[in-house]
Design a protein around this nucleic acid. Structure first.
Lengths: 147, 147
DNA sequence: CCTTATATTGAGAATCAGTTGCAAACTTAT
DNA sequence: ATAAGTTTGCAACTGATTCTCAATATAAGG
């Protein structure tokens, strides 16, 4: 059994829930998708493997995955909620270039210390972080200079 | 004319659009609201001043304000898109409690140093930052213990 | 002050992501 | 095998957001 499957099963057990076949398929699809995804994209991915799962179950399973700490909500886009899997992934920062739309991800370690410090001052228990920096990437800054 | 009104007018001009009375009222309401707001809350605020504006216009105007750099999308909550005005505001962090939905804002200064350092390494020019931490606030941690 | 071309609006209809009720099917423990 | 509880697909539903459209307003040029 894969690592994340085990973690999901453990989580479900604590809630008296079961790791059923649809849930297993959804979980696998989530970890096949390496980009951010929305409910429909996830559904299509699952469908390409099995016809065993309905879109309602997708919507019902996503919150479980989030609560289990396997998936986190990402920035909403074009009117749809988006997610990304995070288990085994170091936290990261999204650098979004407003000119060319490129998204680069970098490590979050340097910032996490400061985040945790402030959290403990506030008595806040951190579950997820979402850090997005918007601006111009070096490529687009170069282009700008040439104009 | 207020600073942000001028900025909005300039933006509209570049798009061949006009600063009409409904748009002016919406803009004013946005800068009256000091908290995050969703479309309906903004509508109610505008209505308390004038009956001159419909909800459709609210929905049409928000993307203009975002594109003009006066408003930015905040964390979605209970199925509704949320926004906040940003013009002239210091950057901040959002702490969102997943249990009770409370949103607290704190200063970003401590983290900005680290962000800027990494940005300069990458040659990235920072324009906006959106830092959201999700988890449990002290109140809900307390409640949890009592159960 | 007219005319014309264009932008804007409110009202309500339409859409669409996401949620929910329900009855059948499954799981697990006894 | 049975009982108690969980899960699922389906279809109906909900409610936020978007769209359509006819009427109104605006700005520019005569």
């Amino acid at each position: 059994m894969q690592d994340h499957e085990l973690k999901f099963k453990d989580y479900l057990a604590t809630k008296g829930l079961k790791l059923t076949s649809p849930r297993k398929h959804i979980l696998d699809a989530v970890f096949d998708l390496h980009e951010h995804f929305n409910a429909e994209e996830l559904y299509n991915r699952v469908k390409s493997i099995t016809s065993d799962v309905s879109i309602a179950t997708i919507y019902r399973t996503i919150p479980l995955l989030v609560d289990a700490g396997l998936v986190q909500q990402a920035l909403r886009s074009s009117g749809r909620d988006r997610y990304e899997h995070i288990y085994g992934h170091p936290k990261h920062i999204h650098w979004l270039c407003k000119a060319c739309g490129a998204i680069v991800e970098t490590d979050l370690n340097t910032l996490m210390g400061a985040v945790r410090e402030q959290a403990s001052l506030m008595g806040f228990r951190v579950q997820e972080t979402e850090i997005s920096i918007m601006g111009l990437c070096w490529k687009c800054i170069d282009n700008e200079k040439q104009i």
